[in-house]
């Protein structure tokens, strides 16, 4: 029982990342009709926003400590962060320690800016081109972005630890009278993803802007005929989708150390999530994200891997095949989307 609960939690947690990335992908596809293979790179850039802020906050000055030696036997250069000298070791240390949550504020304008630049500078030129062209250009863009990040940050993973208060484990089984520990930050990530998903849905459902965007997703031409500049709104949605991916990346840093390739690691899985959920369906993307996360988690249990060796490696693709055979439009796909 405790194993099932643990794997379910774990699946929800994995699904959070899948759902957040797939949500952004679907937003872009649903609004602009673009298959954006650079979306994983936006997730990666978000994670590196946290790395950058951590480095900025850790900028230090050097003093020579004659009592200690470095690896060559020279007097050791001791680094002290400026924030610690300005605000004292306790406050300065706390600011650096909370760099990941602080990076959320830092990342929002940056990611919206990156999204705008990406859409206005490159992707808008491919709206009327075939999906194959869009895939090629966005995939190329993803490679360029990851190589740029690698140039500045290197290929090695860079740790962005959570604040001490949100580190460690919590006993989540106490409600059921069991002893089940789970990492606190992963619970935070799950709740954060629910918050973001809820905010995106509320924005689309309960604001005038969202209503126009939804109308545009359903029938772009008619909305345009009403004199509404739907293209501008769709560009803003691209920025919002980029921000969602970026925030997902910022918060993912403490789970797995950011590296330049992390966007590509998620990209294929996220596309499977979108296809399983149904192209253009926002609830489908979220549902499929959590569903595939849970299935992947169950397939990694000792029982599953000993019963069917290798099931952990193929489960997601197996499910995708079954879903597409039985429901070709995906779980919640709409008629007419990606269909000639």
């Amino acid at each position: 029982m405790d194993a099932i609960l643990l794997q379910t939690l774990n699946g929800l947690d994995k699904g959070s990342a899948y759902a957040l990335i797939a949500l952004g992908l679907t937003l872009i596809f649903g609004t602009l009709g673009v298959v954006n293979f650079a979306h994983g790179a936006l997730f990666m850039i978000g994670a590196f926003c946290a790395v950058t802020l951590q480095r900025v906050l850790s900028l230090s000055y050097e003093t020579i400590d004659e009592t200690q030696k470095d690896f060559l036997g020279n007097p050791l250069k001791v680094k002290t962060p400026y924030v610690e000298s300005w605000f004292g070791p306790d406050v300065g240390g706390a600011i650096i320690e909370w760099s990941v949550p602080l990076a959320l504020l830092f990342a929002i304008p940056i990611m919206i800016g990156v999204g705008f630049a990406m859409e206005r500078g490159l992707i808008k030129h491919f709206y009327k081109r075939p999906h194959a062209d869009q895939i090629l250009v966005t995939f190329g863009l993803a490679i360029v972005l990851q190589e740029v990040v690698k140039y500045f940050f290197g290929a090695n993973p860079i740790q962005t630890p959570p604040p001490d208060a949100l580190n460690g484990v919590a006993n989540v089984g106490i409600i059921f009278g069991m002893d089940i520990v789970y990492p606190v930050w992963r619970l935070v990530y799950f709740l954060f993803s629910l918050l973001i998903i809820g905010a995106v849905f509320a924005f689309l459902q309960f604001t005038t802007f969202g209503m126009v965007v939804r109308a545009g997703m359903a029938d772009r031409e008619t909305v345009g005929l009403l004199g509404i500049n739907i293209d501008r709104r769709f560009t803003i949605m691209f920025g919002i989708a980029a921000a969602v991916a970026g925030l997902a990346g910022v918060m993912y840093g403490p789970i797995n150390a950011p590296n330049y390739h992390m966007g590509m690691d998620f990209l294929v899985l996220s596309f499977v999530v979108v296809v399983v959920g149904g192209m253009g369906s926002l609830p489908g993307a979220v549902l499929a994200g959590f569903l595939l996360g849970i299935l992947e988690s169950y397939a990694s249990t000792t029982w599953a891997t000993t019963t069917i060796p290798g099931i952990n490696q193929i489960i997601i693709y197996l499910v995708a095949i079954v879903v597409l055979l039985t429901r070709p439009r995906g779980l919640m796909g709409r008629k007419g989307v990606m269909e000639d």
Binding site: G11, D13, I255, M262
Partner: peptide
């Protein structure tokens, strides 16, 4: 990239 589903069964 995420090994949590492999770590959980270890527990």
């Amino acid at each position: 990239t995420d090994f949590s589903s492999y770590i959980a069964p270890v527990l």
